[in-house]
Design a protein around this nucleic acid. Structure first.
Lengths: 166, 166
DNA sequence: TTAAACTTTCAAAATATTTTGAAAGTTAGA
DNA sequence: TCTAACTTTCAAAATATTTTGAAAGTTTAA
């Protein structure tokens, strides 16, 4: 496999997968592009490489910075902003886990917590309490784990992962 | 909080969150409805409750069965099919983990495995190999864990979760 | 200040996804 | 077999999301 082909496949595949897990295609493609690039890239570089508009590039670079997956870099003698991706895979995974925990899991825990307090003695109410209490217990645990992972050092996480597999 | 209010909130919230993680709103709403329902519901019940078309209801019930989150039930003296949701929270989480591992993580592992074999000695090629090898190592581990979880008994998983938190 | 160089915004357009519903397909029992 | 009861399909319509690009906003250096 040649370099250009590999690069394209990475950008395409990463982009497609991202849409399946609720992140937009362009954001993931920019991430892939920056992950592969040995040097920092400017907004114009990104626009050029991915053939996208300035607004789109800007918006999604900001989102990546928001997720702490990409950082701004200042190049001396240049007024442009340049961007680099965090390349350590565990740091990337940690930040994705943290963001998703915050956006997706926390609200679920809050919801189950609230719903499990519904009153009434009918079959419907009892069923609702039973199901939501059970879900609450599990989502809390998942939430705790994701929080821990999100805040942990890569080395701690690596050990934990290995201990789970073996 | 009253029952109807709680039920609506669950259906709405579950539906909204689902769209963030790549599952369609209706599929999640049907799942929520079935989770709360003490009895099995028919396609017509689902259409009625959620005010959706027959095609939509049918399609998403099939998807839920495909994910092994919902089962068909036959009620004697009735030709209709009825449906119930799996209600044990760990079984639900296990099945979701399994499906997502299969659909989302496995292809990533395969991609990194392929890309890390790219040849060439330039800076770009070296960077690509370095990044993809690192990502491969991590995604393989995540893939292994999700596979284990997906295949495990709820009790095994519960123990593992607790050991991670403490 | 000023103006060039750059970044951000956002309404409209393009694209992608989901939903509808009628028609086609299937099945069970008379 | 036939037909009523039910399920599935799928092209078109509706809806939601993403992208564009020009205009507005900001910053830097002279």
């Amino acid at each position: 496999m040649q370099y250009e082909e590999a690069k394209d496949e990475f950008i395409q595949t990463w982009g497609n997968l991202a849409t399946q897990w609720g992140i937009n295609r362009t954001m993931a493609q920019i991430h892939a592009l920056l992950l592969l690039s040995p040097e920092a890239l400017s907004t114009d570089d990104v626009m050029e490489e991915l053939q996208i508009s300035r607004g789109n590039a800007n918006m999604n670079i900001r989102a990546l910075i928001d997720w702490a997956l990409v950082q701004k870099v200042y190049v001396k003698g240049d007024r442009k902003e340049f961007f680099i991706a965090i390349k350590d895979s565990f740091t990337v995974a940690r930040r994705i886990a943290k963001e998703r925990q915050r956006r997706e899991v926390s609200p679920v825990v809050a919801m189950f917590d609230e719903l499990s307090k519904v009153e009434g003695s009918g079959a419907k109410e009892q069923e609702l309490r039973k199901v939501t209490l059970d879900m609450l217990q599990m989502t809390k645990q998942i939430n705790d784990i994701l929080s821990k992972f999100g805040d942990s050092e890569p080395s701690w996480w690596k050990k934990k992962l290995i201990s789970l597999i073996s």
